[in-house]
Amino acid sequence: MNSGNYFFKFLVLVIVFTAFIFIAVFFGYFSDLFSNSLSEWEYISISQIRIPRTVAAILSGIALSVSGMQMQSLFRNPLAGPYVLGISSGGALGVSLVTMGLSLTGITFSGTGAFSGVVIASAAGCLLFMLIIFSLHLKIRHPATVLVAGILLGSAASAIVEILQYISPERNVKSFVVWTMGSLSSVDTDQMYVFIVFVASGIILSLFLNNVLNTLRSGDEYAHVLGTNVKLARILVFTSTGLLTGSVVAFCGPIAFVGVAVPHITRLIIGSSNHRVLFWGNILCGGIIMLLADISSRIMFSEIQLPVNAITSLIGIPVILYLVLSKNKISFS
């Protein structure tokens, strides 16, 4: 609670965050930037490509980390993450139906701009799965059962996806597989604004959930005794996670491991489990990690860009492994 203790840590995080934004946007153009000689072409490249991409990285980092934190506290499980409710499987199902399923029937469906076929399909799939989880939740008492339902839904979705992959032509399968690898570059300027609106609304909702999550850490019964309306709290947490995770899956694909690993990294750095502090820590750390992933996916090999999931996995897995191996470090919030 003592804000003085955290001031220095947050100051460092803000500085790193700002530096990473700068690098992500202007990397390769530094000399031109400082000599004030950005050409027309460079200006377009920065405003049309670099900025949307950087914003996508920041938004997905923030969204996944905050919803990962919420899921870990709600389910009191250190290995929970934004996808435990099966949201990403819903997205994958939607995208697979568009990229592979529709082409089998001969229809092509491809909008443009903010509402391209893939984005719509993915968002619809996420929403559908969210609604299923909601209606199950109204019947189920125990939160762990919702977790099981999420896993089962995910398996059912991937079964359908596998069938589609098996019967579809190679070209379509590849475009689906590329989607599952996650991509920050598919976000254009129009999509960027829609993405901002969704993540911002999820984040604003989350602002009101930090105190409640502090009580939910100790289970439903204590949360109730301490004054939480547990049912309402859980529905709002699911809604914010749905908004945050759903929009990331829709615009960037199922970006892996960030949502599980960053909340732990944040807890280690901040040294608190108070959600009022962790929330801001996750926003900064999530943004930093995704920017780091984006920058390294571009500079590791200058010729090709690596898929972003490869990078986030390479960053996330060692962190999770470290946490699992050193027992005392892994403490669910």
Partner: peptide, 10 residues
Amino acid sequence: VIPDIKVSEV
């Protein structure tokens, strides 16, 4: 059921 958080936070 109390999580492993700091005593002050409990």
